[in-house]
């Protein structure tokens, strides 16, 4: 039987590596009977969706611009670079 701590670790790792069959079976069984860990899994999914939205919002926001100061500084650095 997995503890919630172990189950949550596997939920997180499933985003980073393929789980083994044994881990998958154990995790699925745990999630079947554990509301809290199911919610944790949903939270991570919600988190990733929100990150995607935040990225899109930033990239599309025309009011966010490279400042004139920053541009000037970059040009100075380029000029002083041999």
């Amino acid at each position: 039987m997995l503890t919630c701590k172990q189950a949550s670790q596997l939920v997180s790792q499933s985003l980073d590596r393929p789980l083994s069959w044994r881990e998958l079976v154990q995790l699925r069984f745990h999630l079947l009977i554990c509301n809290a860990c199911r919610h944790f899994k949903q939270q991570l999914n919600q988190l990733l969706i929100a990150i995607e939205q935040l990225k899109n919002e930033t990239v599309l926001d025309q009011t966010i611009q490279l400042s004139t100061d920053a541009k000037t500084k970059i040009l100075q650095v380029i000029e002083s670079n041999p």
Partner: peptide, 14 residues
């Protein structure tokens, strides 16, 4: 910088 600076900056900031 004039053509793409703002876009690159937003991409990096994101």
């Amino acid at each position: 910088l004039n053509d793409h600076g703002d876009y690159l900056y937003r991409f990096a900031l994101a």
